[in-house]
Design a protein around this nucleic acid. Structure first.
Length: 283
DNA sequence: CCACGATCCTGCTAGC
DNA sequence: TGCTAGCAGGATCGTG
């Protein structure tokens, strides 16, 4: 659920409070897979005393660059959230890690569904992670040429599956993939090789536009599983979603009923008229 | 080469 | 009203 805009919002909220801080304690580690392959004692010993040199984002990963060159990576997965609280605030029942900071505050990793992961990476391991991820969609170096090359790697794959593939493009998940395809007027099941250069250009502009707007709105908060950040505010992009979760409702562009299908085992929402599929690509 | 299903997990909801 | 079955989803892995 947290996709690039939600992680970016978390980054912007937390960064000023984390840079320069030293981690003086780690507690509430009640779910071993969160820090695997480290065991609890090893993990605590490995990061207590470390100072945060910089905080950044890569795809959906939030990264704490430590002064000794190692990197603490947070992946929020489905339901992960990070909060900064006064040190005395007790962890709630979904908080599976608390990092105590030298200014008396504490970073809480809250994750009801427990899919999130916290990884302590050597500089070499971080390079591997970085190389495994595709380009940053908002980077100036992510051009139509780069996007076209990425699409060529899996010519027979469906477009929506590719957009969610982190090693091809870092940061899009199900919600924004749906919104991007709607804006680009491309059917989720279009084959990668079938896109004209004009359509690739449209796709690139849609990716940038949707992500920029979502970041400006501080992400998407869905009513049933809240993405909250920092101070506990909610992202405002949910009300701006054009197709996600709107099966049976009229398309905001043409009024045709929005349909729901499945790609990669995930709900896919689209307007069958605006995002038509050529006869040669019927599935 | 690409699709699909299973896996991990729990809050919420639809339905009885 | 209260219970339960089913769904949701990021990433990975094995199978077809």
């Amino acid at each position: 659920m947290p996709e690039l805009p939600e992680v970016e919002t978390t980054l912007q909220t937390l960064r000023p409070h984390l840079v320069g801080r030293t981690i003086v304690g780690v507690r509430a580690l009640d779910y071993p897979p969160l820090i695997a392959p480290y065991r609890k004692e090893e993990f605590v010993a490995a990061i207590v005393g470390c100072r945060v040199r910089e905080v950044d984002r890569r795809g959906k990963h939030l990264l704490l660059f430590l002064e000794d060159g190692r990197v603490l990576s947070f992946h929020l997965a489905m339901s992960g959230r990070l909060f900064l609280y006064p040190g005395e605030t007790p962890p709630d029942r979904h908080t599976h890690a608390v990092l105590d900071l030298d200014d008396g505050r504490a970073l809480h990793f809250c994750d009801p569904r427990k899919y999130g992961r916290m990884r302590l990476l050597s500089p070499e391991a971080y390079v591997i992670l970085d190389r495994r991820l595709g380009p940053e969609p908002l980077s100036p170096t992510f051009t139509t040429k780069v996007l076209a090359e990425q699409l060529k790697k899996y010519p027979r794959a469906r477009l929506k599956a590719l957009l969610q593939e982190q090693h091809l493009l870092a940061g899009l998940g199900n919600i924004y993939a749906n919104e991007v395809l709607f804006r680009a007027r491309l059917h989720p099941c279009r084959l990668a090789e079938s896109l004209s250069s004009g359509e690739i250009g449209r796709l690139l502009r849609a990716i940038r536009k949707i992500l920029r707007e979502a970041i400006a709105a501080q992400g998407t908060t869905l009513s049933d599983r809240g993405f909250l950040f920092g101070t506990g505010e909610e992202g405002r992009f949910a009300e701006r979603l054009q197709v996600y979760g709107r099966a049976g409702q009229p398309c905001p562009r043409c009024g045709t009923t929005i349909q729901r299908g499945y790609v990669l085992g995930r709900s896919s929402y689209f307007c069958p008229r605006c995002q038509s599929l050529p006869n040669t690509e019927r599935y």
